[in-house]
Nucleic acid binder design. Structure first.
Lengths: 235, 235
DNA sequence: TAGATTGTTAATCGATTAACAATC
DNA sequence: TAGATTGTTAATCGATTAACAATC
């Protein structure tokens, strides 16, 4: 039997970015790129780019570089973006509504098939031509329509229960926007978007940047004082 | 002069998670926790927890553990969550609207002070009691109100121009939701939320999980066939 | 004091970068 | 063929984990 390659998550996380840049290059009509040129564009080292891509196969050609269109297609296929995904959104609040609209005009291949809510005021309404249904009917709907992805846009408190129901119904992946770490079986893929965590780390860096600037100011002042003193001594 | 500690980004990214779990513990009335107990709860190794926390100071006590409330406050302060932040949202589409609502009831300390749009149909409307203003007036507003954070909810095409304007106006941090990598000066902190990248890496893992399951099925079948053969031979 | 658990140094592991032989 | 640039191995760097002395 063949050895398992076992590709690290760090590599996977870079793939969508490679793909974004390749899409731009395609749009500009560029048809080949070397790892060096790509490096100065995308900000990864040329070495890393070659290393990353070689996890999946020899997509380049020595003395030439990489074919932009070919590489774009390869990465798309690796990510599974040559397939279609049926999704449901659970929670029709503001975030849920935003996701419904966002995903529809952005993501070919990711189709929202249903929205589920507990709030009776929202049930029956349509967003983007997709009806809001009763949360009670979630499991049945997911099973019958072979839904691939469940998007959790509920409160922290309900998120785990929703995840359990989705997993029970045979979902393949969960995209979680609730600010809590949910548990799913190994067979289900999970991607968390912890917006508050992201905002908090922004806050950290802002204060650090501030501190650094303060330090610089202090250093500048110290230097100035020293200079003045030296000048004084020299007199 | 003192040595610079230089805390890695991997550590910073874990801080909001520590804080979330500490908040839960506080809520449950737990008042002390050892790195070992915390480890089995949060899923990082006890060693990593101690290592991480010691970047910022000795918050624990030998033979006792960590005081939950004290540690929560320390981490909050490290992240700068003891301060208030004034924010503007640029782009009042669905995503912008969702962020406005989301941040308001979730995040004490992060206040949306203004929303800016180019679309004249939206200018003048209020969301969550915050008026949508003309994008033309963005720079002036940011300067006059000493806005800390700019949230970019525009299209990919406008994002860099918006970022430039925000930086010019003296913003301290940018939270970017546009699916593009924007450039900002060193003095400005930047946090990207690339939702499509997140969805794409979910797709990758779903297909991998699938593949693994297929492999298992094939292996199971092979094993079964082998077993049958062995049984045959033994007859 | 004895037991527990931190703070911190040392060892390990994994990911990134450098180097260069293979090859188009 | 010569030049360019990949694919891949080896070296480096950084982050995680293990170990244990310090100490509450």
């Amino acid at each position: 039997m063949k050895e398992k390659p076992k590709i690290s998550n760090a590599v996977i996380k870079r793939l969508p970015r490679y793909r974004r840049y390749l899409k731009e290059l395609k749009k500009k009509g560029v048809d080949k790129i070397s790892s060096n040129e790509f490096s100065s564009l995308i900000g990864y080292t040329a070495s890393q780019i070659r290393q990353d891509l070689n996890n999946f196969g020899g997509f380049g050609q020595q003395g030439y570089g990489y074919n932009v269109n070919g590489l774009y297609n390869e990465i798309s296929a690796i990510l599974g973006l040559d397939k279609q995904y049926k999704m449901v959104v659970v929670g029709a609040g503001n975030l849920g509504q935003a996701i419904i609209n966002y995903t529809n005009y952005y993501k070919a291949g990711f189709l929202v098939k249903g929205i589920f809510e507990v709030n009776p005021k929202l049930i029956g309404i349509s967003f983007n031509d997709i009806e809001v249904m009763d949360y009670e009917d979630l499991v049945e709907f997911v099973e019958e329509n072979a839904i691939d992805i469940g998007i959790i846009c509920t409160t922290r408190q309900s998120a785990q229960e929703v995840a359990d129901k989705l997993c029970f119904a045979g979902i393949r992946g969960i995209w979680n926007f609730a600010p809590v770490d949910i548990e799913v079986p190994d067979s289900v893929s999970l991607e968390n978007v912890h917006l508050s965590d992201s905002l908090h780390s922004l806050a950290y860096h802002m204060n650090r940047a501030n501190q650094k600037n303060e330090e610089k100011k202090i250093k500048a002042r110290t230097d100035l004082a020293q200079k003045a003193e030296t000048a004084n001594t020299e007199k």
